[in-house]
Amino acid sequence: MSLWAAVAVLGFAMVFSVPRRALPGIALLAVAAHLLRAACLEQGMTLPAASLLAALFVGATAAVVAPRTGEATPIYAFAPVIPLVPGTAMFDTLIGLLALTSGADPAARVDQVAVDATTATLTIIALAVGAIGPTLVLGTRIARLMERTSIDPDG
């Protein structure tokens, strides 16, 4: 199932005008992130927490791979997290909000709408922080470390 994340990421990578040579790496990263999140969910983690871990994995990989391949870091950090967007929770929130104004018993739906909206919002925040955080915190240090490693003939 997670292989579909590779298809999901390609359209966005093209909208972002990602260089063609980077597409296979991005697709691979998207699948790995989706598998990681699925594994975390199976272990009982919540969707936002599992998404944060998967996005941190994407962000950390981007911080290492991008300087090594000479690409801009957002190429590897941004597109692969898009398949992790909580579309179902977002859709359920919207339908729930519509039902609040048109349904017979709106009070009974409020709790579910609140749960869906909170899950969607926290998951999106987790994805953004996870994808960006490693580059902002570690990006320069990793690049310098790799420069030193590549210069050192014994390294």
Binding site: A5, L10, P83
Partner: peptide, 13 residues
């Protein structure tokens, strides 16, 4: 490709 991405999302859901 964007249509394909949306379809892939649908399968994932």
């Amino acid at each position: 490709a964007l249509g394909g991405s949306s379809a892939a999302f649908a399968v994932l859901f």
